[in-house]
Design a protein around this nucleic acid. Structure first.
Lengths: 347, 347
DNA sequence: CCTCGTGATGGAAGCGCTCCCACATTTCGG
DNA sequence: CCGAAATGTGGGAGCGCTTCCATCACGAGG
């Protein structure tokens, strides 16, 4: 008879505990625990008794207690080292989060968003990760000076980068699109089209994606024997694209082709070109990069290099979960996705 | 001499524990704990000894162990019950997250993003919240049928809604913009302008913001003695705005004013109007809602009703933290922010 | 008929931390 | 100069869970 109140359980204080489940089911706490977690070595009778008890009591395991002993938290962090504003206005981020979430939904893993504004909060973020508050980290769009790659490698936290990290490229895993090939192909399209005076609006110089794309443009230009002198840098935002286009057209009014490192910047550039009375693509052809929705909505619609952001994030996440599950498999891995050129009206 | 290996501490297994800090600092675990958490009732000598030990050992407290006893997790959830895609493409969400993060950065609280696609995953989300995995929840843009408001009230988890919830409006706290007043004002602007045939593109009927805005439009139309029959619903996306505008213009070719429940939909509508050869605002004046960046970039630039999303999120978050800190203060509270009309070219 | 392996079970030892409580040590007003 | 209040400190009891290990029941094989 379970009439005698156990001396160690408050019997009705808030959430039911595993102890109570065990008592109600008439088994030991150990058996109850086993039954709840997959039911290895549990008789059918015990299993169903526990199941019933769980249901009637409305039991939910206490995650803190569980992870105290399992040393797992069943959550991963998505680290976004960006100055707030840019993060959200850029569909790149949206696509990434979508991909991550798609994978996490399959298992019972939650997503902790770490928005690390540059400077002080990087320390905070790092501390959080060091604490093992999460089982792993996915780092997206990091910058040269945050040194996140090294720090994470030091901590020993399983992690995967979205986009090639600056350093420690051999110590960490990452998933990236082939930026060089993509931008080269974009440039070659303009060249094939007959453009001879091609400029580029590159991304911020402290991001590998930006550098790689610039590199792709340079390579294509060199291969075609064209001068690669018309370069302007933006920060991937629309406004910076406008500014860059304005500067570029002033310095090189004769441009007949423009390779832009992101669709958002390209959209800004298109507006400037319209303002200046240049017809696209007749006077000047324009290619963007990303194809995450923006490109379809510019006028004219943007020819661009598509990177399958959501899928990349999905892969990165799977990769991360793999090494969370088996930290031994932590050989650095890279996964390079080929981009595809999407032709629309602007080139 | 700390030469004798304590019987209860592995001395060098992975992360250092509080025990080790205490031993190195030459104090008890209790004192070390106090010193680390704010240092009430700790002598200067003990404090500095602990500080030093923490530093040399590189000690970071184990969050699971801590929250097992404190029953706090120092993280809150942002619940977004949306079908993935819409979430990110909408700057509303971006602004919200920005506001939330601004507040959380001040304290050491983390943000867990719960993307609950309708259907099955609502259960998952609810389970997560029930587990007390987080200290509180901020629910944004919820729909009629997710019944999140009731469920959360049942669980007893501190929570605040962004936008008036459908039900349980008296049991839960929320922060909202005055949608009725805002849309009425927008409509009145068109009326003052001389428009007499004014249609509206409303949002999804299962969201209060959409219903309230529609209501505002109706009220203004009624007050002016104008027929409120030209209504079409979208889902706040640009594409749906296009479709709605097309349908509306076909059924009511004589419209000379259009009140749209979101800027994104208005952008879609503007494109359709341009396509149909209607000049804006001369042939037909258009007002949007939101003013989160999109409105400045349409052509013509959109006159719209601004809701200060980031600030609203900020307030909601503060409100949430207040009740996390003091669950007793859980009187339902609502905070209604007045919107402001921003005049640009479209009306 | 006895010994083994096998599967099911419960006891108990923690995981690393906070915090109550008792005790020791000051500090003061009267 | 003394009792009371204030201040520091450490012991120890958990928080709720997983998991190792010893135990036990039960057929199967020798």
């Amino acid at each position: 008879m379970a009439r005698v109140t156990s001396s160690r359980t408050p019997a009705s204080a808030g959430q039911p505990t595993l102890d109570e489940v065990a008592r109600v089911a008439g088994v030991s706490r150990a058996t109850a625990s086993r039954a709840i977690n997959g039911g290895q070595r549990v008789s059918a009778r015990a299993q169903s008794a526990v199941d019933t008890a769980v249901r009637t009591l409305g039991y939910v395991p206490n995650p803190a207690a569980r992870s105290l002993v399992t040393r797992r938290t069943d959550s991963i962090a998505v680290v976004v080292p960006e100055p707030d504003d840019r993060v959200f206005s850029d569909p790149f981020f949206a696509g990434t989060l979508r991909g991550v979430n798609r994978v996490l939904a399959e298992r019972d893993i939650q997503l902790v968003l770490l928005l690390a504004r540059p400077g002080a909060s990087t320390a905070r973020t790092l501390r959080y990760l060091t604490n093992r508050h999460v089982d792993g980290a996915l780092v997206t769009s990091h910058h040269r000076d945050d040194r996140l790659a090294e720090h994470l490698a030091d901590i020993g936290l399983p992690c995967v980068f979205g986009g090639r990290p600056w350093t420690g490229g051999d110590r960490v895993a990452y998933v990236d699109v082939d930026n060089v090939a993509g931008e080269r192909e974009a440039t070659e399209l303009l060249i094939a089209r007959g453009c001879t005076r091609i400029g580029t609006i590159a991304g911020p110089a402290d991001m590998t994606a930006a550098e790689d794309r610039l590199d792709g443009w340079r390579k294509a230009m060199a291969a075609a024997g064209l001068p690669a002198d018309a370069v302007e840098h933006g920060d991937f935002t629309e406004a910076s694209g406008e500014a860059a286009a304005r500067a570029l057209m002033q310095r090189h009014p004769d441009l007949d082709g423009l390779v832009v490192a992101s669709d958002l910047m390209a959209a800004g550039a298109l507006r400037v070109l319209a303002e200046l009375g240049r017809r696209v693509p007749d006077d000047i052809a324009v290619v963007g990069f990303d194809d995450l929705g923006v490109a379809e909505r510019t006028s004219p619609a943007l020819t661009t290099v598509r990177q399958p952001v959501a899928e990349m994030a999905e892969r990165a996440t799977r990769l991360l979960l793999e090494r969370v599950d088996d930290p031994a498999s932590s050989r650095p891995m890279r996964m390079i996705i080929p981009p595809t050129l999407v032709r629309r009206a602007s080139a």
